[in-house]
Design a protein around this nucleic acid. Structure first.
Lengths: 162, 162
DNA sequence: ATGAAACCCCAGTGAAGAACCGGAGTATAA
DNA sequence: TTATACTCCGGTTCTTCACTGGGGTTTCAT
């Protein structure tokens, strides 16, 4: 959004994105690997994850750094280092993951300083509603859920082969 | 997404956006005006709508053209021309509007030719679920709904003034 | 100790899209 | 016939996304 309607010198920004971008997908795939590895105790290295899930490693590095700052993974530096989940897989929801990556902290803080029109307020409300409906789904899904589904789907694929 | 993981020469694109962008908001605001005007029968001009809702008129022009091609509004050319809703306000859902603007026709057609990994399939599934939860909200909301809410909210604002 | 393996930080780049802007048309009511 | 309003097409600027690269620093193994 370049210059959304400057009213009386006050710019109003109005977008409420709910994205599963490439970034989020990469991060989720990486976390899925870490979740599968969680019981081993051994850290997984960026290179391994990147190779396994076909993700550019230097990019993945940045994403994992973000997840680390968000408290979702822990890192071990040096040789034999790598990444481990900071919590159990069933205690990390997908909502946490994407919030960490997209950085939605400053959302509607100080109850919307920018005085908007009645119309845009109405539009935004319904959108928030849709947004929250999506968030609810993501909140109920954890990394463990995804892991279980992965296993189930693999079994299914084997069935089809026979 | 620039170059998402080209596996064996086959690029895979994987984003499932659910955006309320500036574009959608502009369009909804314009449609809201048209919905309020619907009983009058007289068309509304781009200039009027743009001035009322503080939208750049040349940009709004493009959006209305898209909505026209999508069959949501009708246009009348020449002097005394303008735009009218193509249907009654309660027969136009918000989902239709954003689908028209974002152009989500080719979604999952031919059941996903690009063979994806088990992991990304699992991630995409849950995302689709979230996506549909949001869509359900938008499908249940029509332009009439927004109109009614606008009226209600205006009453509320008057109450606060006293 | 020392070197290699791994994470860490910061900066830049290229493509794509979003949000416009402008001009030259074309249809139509008065 | 003329002013009004839509229509089509192209360009411009700005931002973001998905990367890439160049330096580090920390830590384990020998």
């Amino acid at each position: 959004m370049k210059n959304r309607s400057i009213i009386k010198g006050k710019p109003i920004t109005l977008d409420i994105p709910v994205e599963l971008s490439c970034k989020c997908e990469y991060a989720l795939l990486a976390l899925l690997e870490l979740a599968a590895q969680y019981n081993e105790g051994e850290p997984l290295q960026i290179r391994q994850i990147a190779a396994q899930q076909n993700i550019p490693d230097r990019y993945l590095e940045q994403l994992l750094a973000t997840l680390r700052r968000g408290g979702l993974v822990k890192s071990q530096r040096g040789a034999k280092g790598g990444y481990v989940l900071a919590r159990e897989p069933w205690k990390i929801t997908l909502l946490e993951v994407i919030n960490c990556l997209e950085g939605l902290e400053a959302k509607s803080s100080k109850e919307e300083v920018n005085h908007k029109t009645v119309e845009s307020a109405v539009v935004q409300e319904i959108w928030q509603e849709a947004h929250q409906a999506a968030n609810l789904v993501l909140q109920k899904c954890t990394l463990q859920t995804l892991c279980d589904q992965r296993v189930a789907r693999r079994q299914l694929d084997i069935m089809y082969y026979i």
